[in-house]
C-alpha cells in the first residue's frame, strides 16, 4: 500500500464511515436541536432584558448589567461544567443537554442584550420626540419606531456573535451530550479509526458554513451607511 492509500484508509475509511454514518447523522440532529433552542431562548432573553433596561429602573438595570458582565466574562465551558458538575451538589441535576443549552443560552443572552441595548440607544433622540409628540406612548414608540431601527442596526454584530456562540454546542461533548463531536469521538474510540472524526468535522461544515456565508451577505446588506 502506498502512503497515500494508507492515509486514505486511515482517515477516510469507507467501511468505518458507512458503519458510523447513522451515528453522525443522529449527532447532527442533536446539534441542530441544541442550536435552535439556544438561538431562540438566548436572543429572546437578551431582547427582553434590553427592553426592560430601557425602562430605566435603576436597581434593575444594575442587576441586568452585572448579569451581562458575568456571562460575558465567564468561559462557556466553565459555565457548563459548573451547572453539570456543580449543581448536583445542591440536589439540582441537569442533563448534559440541558446544561449545555442553559449555559450557551445565558451567554448568548448576555452578548445579545449588550448589542440590542447599544442598538436602542443609538436611535436618535429626535425619533423618540417626534413619535411622542404625535401622541404615541413610550411602549408604542419603542415597538413601532425605535426597535425596528435598532434591530436593523444590530443585525451584523448579532449574526456573528450568534454563530460564534452556537458553534459552542460542541462543548456539550464534555458533559456527554450525544451531539456531533460526542458521537464522532465515541465512534472513533470504538473503531480505533479517525474517519468518524473527519465525518464529524464535515458535518459541522455542512451545518455552519452556509450560515457563515449567509451572515457575510447580511453583513454587506445591512452595512452601516456612513
Amino acid at each position: 500500500m502506498s502512503t497515500w492509500d494508507r492515509f486514505v484508509d486511515t482517515f477516510f475509511n469507507g467501511k468505518v464511515m458507512a458503519k458510523y454514518l447513522p451515528d453522525i447523522l443522529s449527532g447532527m440532529v442533536v446539534t441542530i436541536e441544541l442550536a435552535v433552542l439556544i438561538v431562540i431562548t438566548g436572543l429572546g432573553a437578551g431582547l427582553a432584558l434590553a427592553l426592560i433596561r430601557s425602562l430605566a429602573i435603576r436597581p434593575l438595570n444594575w442587576l441586568i448589567v452585572f448579569t451581562v458582565d458575568l456571562f460575558r466574562a465567564l468561559p462557556p465551558l466553565v459555565i457548563i461544567v459548573l451547572i453539570y458538575f456543580g449543581l448536583p451538589y445542591a440536589d439540582l441535576s441537569f442533563s448534559g443537554f440541558v446544561s449545555t443549552w442553559l449555559s450557551l443560552a445565558l451567554v448568548l443572552m448576555a452578548f445579545s442584550e449588550e448589542i440590542f441595548w447599544a442598538g436602542i440607544t443609538s436611535v436618535h433622540k429626535g425619533q423618540w420626540e417626534a413619535s411622542r409628540s404625535t401622541g404615541l406612548s413610550f411602549g408604542q414608540t419603542l415597538m413601532n419606531v425605535v426597535l425596528p431601527q435598532a434591530l436593523r442596526l444590530t443585525i451584523p454584530p448579532l449574526t456573528n456573535r450568534t454563530i460564534a456562540i452556537t458553534k459552542g454546542t460542541a462543548l456539550g461533548t464534555v458533559v456527554a451530550v450525544t451531539e456531533i463531536l460526542g458521537e464522532a469521538s465515541s465512534a472513533m474510540s470504538n473503531s480505533y479509526n479517525p474517519s468518524p472524526l473527519m465525518m464529524g468535522a464535515a458535518a459541522y461544515l455542512v451545518l455552519f458554513l452556509p450560515v457563515v456565508v449567509l451572515a457575510r451577505r447580511l453583513e454587506r446588506k445591512f452595512a452601516w451607511k456612513r
Partner: peptide, 28 residues
C-alpha cells in the same frame, strides 16, 4: 398621549422615521 395629538410639532431635523414610507410616517 391623548393631549399631544392636539398639538402638532415640527422639528428642525424633521425626525421622520427612516424605516417607513412617507405614508407610513403619516399614518402611524
Amino acid at each position: 398621549n391623548h393631549a399631544r395629538q392636539r398639538i402638532g410639532m415640527v422639528f428642525q431635523s424633521f425626525n421622520l422615521y427612516p424605516h417607513m414610507t412617507a405614508l407610513g410616517n403619516v399614518t402611524l
